[in-house]
């Protein structure tokens, strides 16, 4: 770990000022400390934001409000969240381990970095870690890498389960920073690698996530997060699918779909949503939606199987929410 100095911020203003001057926020530390130990991350100064009052979780008229510093486990066991947004609870509980969920914050979860093993070690070329050095995964071990949103510079998947659920649910991020407050869809937090894989998100220097808002939706209560993996727990998704669906009289009125483990960012499946909306619910619709979901997949040498797995996972997730008939 590279040496750094440390400051526990007492107020948001102080934290933002420190961060604007080059400090780096630390919340749960489960991503940052891990990568600092590998020296993949080398902040000079850490700003501990855990004292800031950003842990509240509550429901208001227009939706669910989650403080950026709420812990994954707190949100997962919040009864109001379970009632209005079961998809979020599902996605949280399927992630990491109970211990990590006790530590990890919601804001940090959205900003966790890729799990590509070449990124996590200094001795392999990696454009994301060291721009211009090359991508080891493209010609190397890439069975865990992405099908969508890749570039010739980087093919790593975004690992967050929660982000998949939030992107599906059209959640919005509230930030405050040196340039003032902003509000934008969670989906707009992410950038695809393109030519600049080292830039993963759209936050300005010093900009702090303070809150997540998840709008109510008629689809929200019939929702599932299906995570497929080789180990029953404590593993990132091989493929995952978030579904929230409003079915009325056998017709899909409104639906939200997103996938994890397959994209360089949480991958919203808008094409599949379009296929489903207004359709008679049931197998045929699920199959068509799944077919649409794999459209445009660009598999690598090692991850062809994910195309078929995604197709099947979409079908299954839709069945779980909308019935198998």
């Amino acid at each position: 770990m590279h040496p750094f100095s440390f400051h526990a911020a007492a107020t948001e203003q102080e934290a933002i000022a420190e961060a604007a001057a080059g400090g780096r926020y630390i919340a749960g530390g489960t991503t940052l400390v891990d990568l600092m130990r590998e020296e993949v991350e080398r902040p000079r100064r850490l700003i501990d934001i855990n004292r800031l009052p950003l842990r509240d979780v509550h429901v208001q008229d227009d939706g669910l409000v989650i403080g950026a510093l709420a812990r994954m486990s707190d949100v997962a066991r919040d009864p109001a969240t379970a009632q209005v947004q079961p998809l979020i609870v599902d996605a949280l509980v399927e992630g990491a381990s109970p211990q990590i969920r006790n530590m990890a914050s919601i804001g940090g979860n959205l900003l966790q970095r890729v799990r590509c093993s070449y990124f996590r070690t200094l001795d392999a070329p990696c454009n994301k870690r060291t721009p211009g050095s090359g991508c080891s995964a493209i010609g190397g071990a890439n069975s865990g890498h992405a099908l969508f949103g890749t570039s010739v510079h980087c093919v790593a998947t975004h690992p967050s389960d929660l982000a998949v659920a939030l992107v599906a649910l059209d959640a919005v991020i509230l930030t405050r920073g040196p340039g003032g407050a902003r509000r934008f869809p969670v989906e707009a937090l992410y950038r695809m690698p393109g030519e600049t894989p080292h830039l993963e998100h759209t936050l300005e220097p010093g900009e702090m996530i303070v809150e997540i808002r998840v709008p109510h939706g008629s689809y929200a209560r019939r929702a599932r997060y299906l995570k497929v993996r080789d180990r029953a727990s404590y593993e990132f998704a091989v493929v995952s699918v978030a579904v929230a669906m409003d079915i009325d009289g056998g017709i899909v009125r409104d639906v939200r779909l997103a996938a994890g483990g397959v994209g360089t960012m949480p991958w919203r499946l808008r094409g599949s949503e379009a296929v489903l909306t207004g359709r008679q619910s049931g197998r045929a619709a699920w199959r068509d939606a799944a077919e649409r979901a794999i459209d445009g997949a660009q598999p690598l040498v090692g991850n062809h199987f994910k195309v078929e797995l995604l197709r099947r996972t979409v079908v299954r997730a839709l069945e779980m929410v909308g019935g198998a008939a």
Partner: peptide, 14 residues
């Protein structure tokens, strides 16, 4: 690899 941009010493006590 990955170390070209080693930061200068941390600001403040370590």
């Amino acid at each position: 690899l990955g170390v070209a941009d080693l930061p200068t010493d941390a600001a403040g006590p370590q």
